[in-house]
Design a protein around this nucleic acid. Structure first.
Length: 333
DNA sequence: TATAGCCTTAATGATTCTCC
DNA sequence: GGAGAATCATTAAGGCTATA
């Protein structure tokens, strides 16, 4: 197999080829096309995959790629494609995401939104959309203290920790106290400030598209404080390596990949006896649930979590306080 | 005229597949 | 058997609109 510049295998690139070809036919330069792609941050590879799915479908109809440029009714093309997916038992999310990718492709091709998103397509999308809606239910979340206790227990045995466990604890601690997402911690620049403070500087692409700087100050109990864990993590460094990025792994002689940081946090979660199946994001839920349970005000939560629609997003996805508590209180005479 | 709820789409998480 | 790509799936923001 040959590799392209971006490191992707050529296999599976038919979506990308289609995309580049269509935009090229419209007259966009390679640089312009690349800029369009760059604007998607991480989403591009999903778009690419779904366009590949469409390309496969299009060819299976016996159509040629050139015919895409002659399409007069893009809504019809999408509607038929989605209906075919539905007939093949594609998941709801896949149908929605294919629709999204196709719609974007046609918009970039120059169609107005009205030509793409008509009543017929909206009707067709109702079922997958309904299936994607998240039901309101009471979910159990693990206790944040479980994580804290584990971190505390490892605090004076840091030398015995493997590099990957150490990394997992440092990142989990940062996530817990900052409610930053893993991806945001992964791309962060971390630096030491005076008085034992540490600064985590990163960018939020999801929602805000803006820079975020979080400053950790020493807590009373240093064994569960991100400042101490960060400072010990950095102190493993040899003098000459000080300039290396924060998530540098000596064992691999390179920066930890996003997947590795995810794996590291999962190792820690497993060691804490957090039941299998919880995602890395559950650290956010657990931390926010504890804050809310302790009586944090809405304003405090909104500020701390940096959600635009703070209270709503937190209630829907992160506040896992069970209504059992309310019921118990109701039952008190 | 504020807001609930829907819709679209981007961003992220988790798992599976490939290839060395 | 592990790194990295591909694939499947969920989470979240923000726009839009009906409604009280």
């Amino acid at each position: 197999t040959t590799r392209k510049n971006d490191g992707c295998l050529v296999r599976g690139n038919r979506g990308e080829e289609l995309f580049r070809w269509v935009l090229n036919q419209r007259g966009l330069t390679d640089t312009a096309i690349q800029n369009v792609i760059n604007g998607w941050h991480e989403s591009w590879r999903r778009h690419r995959q779904r366009l590949g799915q469409f390309d496969e479908y299009w060819i299976s109809l016996g159509r040629r790629r050139e015919e895409i440029l002659k399409v007069e009714d893009p809504e019809l093309v999408i509607a038929n494609f989605i209906s075919q997916l539905e007939a093949e038992d594609a998941t709801n999310a896949n149908q929605a995401n294919c629709r999204s990718a196709l719609s974007t492709l046609f918009q970039l091709q120059g169609f107005k939104k009205e030509k793409i998103n008509g009543v017929a397509l909206q009707q067709i999308m109702k079922k997958p959309q309904a299936g994607m809606r998240k039901p309101i239910k009471e979910e159990q979340i693990w206790n944040y203290d479980q994580l804290l206790k584990y971190i505390k227990s490892k605090s004076d045995q840091k030398v015995q920790l493997s590099e990957i466990e150490f990394l997992g604890i440092v990142i989990a601690t940062i996530m817990g106290y900052s409610t930053l997402r893993l991806i945001e911690v992964h791309r962060a620049i971390v630096s030491k400030l005076p008085k034992g403070c540490w600064q985590v500087k990163t960018a939020m692409f999801k929602g805000h598209d803006t820079g975020v700087t979080v400053i950790f100050r020493p807590l009373d109990d240093l064994s569960i404080c991100p400042t101490q864990w960060l400072s010990c993590w950095k102190n493993r460094r040899k003098k000459k390596d000080e300039k290396l990025p924060v998530w540098w792994l000596y064992s691999k002689n390179r920066v930890a990949s996003y997947e590795e940081t995810s794996k590291a946090v999962h190792i820690v979660m497993k060691a804490c006896k957090i039941p299998a199946g919880y995602t890395v994001t559950s650290i956010r839920s657990s931390s926010m649930t504890k804050s809310i349970d302790q009586g944090a005000t809405k304003t405090e939560i909104n500020r701390a979590t940096r959600h635009r629609k703070g209270s709503q997003a937190v209630a829907n996805h992160y506040d896992k306080n069970l209504n059992d508590k309310i019921r118990t209180r109701l039952a008190k005479l």
